[in-house]
C-alpha cells in the first residue's frame, strides 16, 4: 500500500514537472539560487579564477540577475555548457538563463523557441593566425586547416565565407575553447576562428600573445546576448530589464561608487525610477523597488563590468568599439525606464 501511494505520488509529481514549465521567477525564488548557463571557460567572459570563483563579463550578467531577483549576487549556480549542450540545457530547464556568448539568430529565436533579451556584446567572427605564417588577410587562407568550435554559428559562417570566396579549407571541429587552444598552439591547425572577442580572450592566455595576430576580416555579425526560454515572458522581462538597467546606469552615470548617494534621490526622474526612489517599476516586474540598485551594485554598471573584465586595461584589451553607449557612437541603447 505504501508503495502504491509512493508510486502514485511519483507519477503525479512527474506529471506536474512535465507540464508546469512556466513561472521561472518563482522557481528561482523558491530555490534561492539562480542556475545560469555559462561557457566551459573563456577568460574575461566566464571562467573560474584561482579561488574557483566564476568571474567575467557574462558571469556579471548572471550575478546582476541573481542580485535583482534574490538580493544576493553570489546566489548563482554556474552551469558550464559547451556550444553543443547549451540549448538543450536551457530548453530542458537545467538552467534558468544562458549568458554564454550566444549569437542572436532568427532560427534560435523562432525555431529553437528561445527569447533573446538583448545584446550585451556586439561581436563578429574573426581569424587568428600565428604571425610566423605571414598571412595578412583571410582570403589568403586557401587550403588552411581551421580549428572551429562545433555547434556554433561560426561553423556556418566559416563554410559560407570560404565557399563564397571560392577557396578551400580543412575544418577541424572541436568541442571546447581549451581544446581548440591546445590544437592551435601545437600547430595542428593554422587558423583558429571564433568571435573576435573570444579570440582576444584566448590570445590573452597565451604565453606569447604577441606571436599571434587577428586578421582584419570580420566575416559576420555576432550579437551576443543572454537568453531565456520562450513562453515565460515575466522571467524574460526580469532578465531583459536587468541588462537594460546596467546599460542605462552607465548612460546616466550611476556607478558602484556613487550609487548610494544617488539612491537618496536626484533631480533626474529616470535615475530615481531606476533606483526605486520614484515609481513602482520593481513591483511591475514582480520584484521589489530596489531590484535595479542591487543589480548595479553587484558588479557596477555596464561600463564598469566591461572595463573590469575585458576592457583595455585588462590582458584581453578589447576596445569599446560598437559596444560603446549610443551617446558615444556605439550601439548600446537601452529603452527608457518609464
Amino acid at each position: 500500500m505504501k508503495k502504491t501511494v509512493f508510486l502514485g505520488a511519483a507519477t503525479v509529481a512527474g506529471l506536474a514537472a512535465g507540464v508546469a514549465a512556466a513561472g521561472t521567477a518563482d522557481d528561482v525564488k523558491a530555490r534561492g539560487k539562480l542556475n545560469c548557463g555559462v561557457t566551459t571557460g573563456l577568460v574575461g567572459f566566464a571562467a573560474p579564477d584561482a579561488n574557483g570563483e566564476w568571474k567575467g563579463f557574462d558571469v556579471a550578467v548572471c550575478r546582476a540577475v541573481a542580485a535583482a531577483v534574490l538580493g544576493d549576487a553570489n546566489a548563482v549556480e554556474f552551469v558550464p555548457t559547451t556550444g553543443k549542450t547549451r540549448f538543450t540545457a536551457l530548453a530542458s530547464g537545467e538552467v534558468d538563463m544562458l549568458a554564454r556568448n550566444t549569437t542572436w539568430t532568427f532560427s534560435r529565436d523562432v525555431d529553437l523557441k528561445f527569447e533573446f533579451v538583448g545584446v550585451n556584446y556586439y561581436d563578429g567572427q574573426g581569424f587568428m593566425v600565428p604571425k610566423s605564417l605571414g598571412v595578412s588577410s583571410a582570403k589568403e587562407l586557401d587550403g588552411a586547416t581551421v580549428c572551429i568550435q562545433t555547434g556554433t554559428t561560426t561553423e556556418l559562417n566559416l563554410a559560407d565565407f570560404f565557399r563564397s570566396n571560392n577557396i578551400s579549407y580543412e575544418p577541424v571541429p572541436i568541442e571546447t575553447n581549451a581544446e581548440a587552444q591546445q590544437q592551435y598552439l601545437a600547430g595542428a591547425c593554422d587558423v583558429y576562428t571564433t568571435d573576435a572577442s573570444g579570440l582576444a580572450a584566448t590570445r590573452a592566455t597565451f604565453e606569447n600573445p604577441g606571436d599571434h595576430v587577428l586578421l582584419p576580416e570580420i566575416i559576420s555579425k555576432e550579437p551576443l546576448g543572454p537568453l531565456v526560454r520562450h513562453g515565460d515572458n515575466e522571467w524574460g522581462d526580469v532578465v531583459r530589464w536587468t541588462l537594460n538597467a546596467l546599460i542605462s546606469a552607465e548612460e546616466y552615470g550611476i556607478t558602484s561608487a556613487n550609487i548610494d548617494e544617488m539612491a537618496a534621490g536626484t533631480d533626474n526622474p529616470e535615475i530615481n525610477r531606476i533606483l526605486g526612489t520614484e515609481g513602482t517599476l520593481g513591483e511591475m516586474l514582480g520584484l521589489d523597488n530596489q531590484w535595479a540598485m542591487r543589480a548595479i551594485k553587484a558588479g557596477g554598471n555596464f561600463g564598469e563590468i566591461f572595463a573590469q573584465n575585458i576592457g583595455e586595461n585588462t590582458p584581453i584589451g578589447l576596445a569599446r568599439g560598437l559596444n560603446a553607449q549610443w551617446t558615444d557612437g556605439g550601439l548600446l541603447y537601452s529603452p527608457p525606464f518609464r
Partner: peptide
Amino acid sequence: IAVGYMDITGTLGGITMNQTGRE
C-alpha cells in the same frame, strides 16, 4: 566527437541536432 572525428554522432547527433534544435 572527443577528437572531432565526424561520425554519425558528430553529424546527425551533433551539428545537425544543434543547428536545427530537433533533439
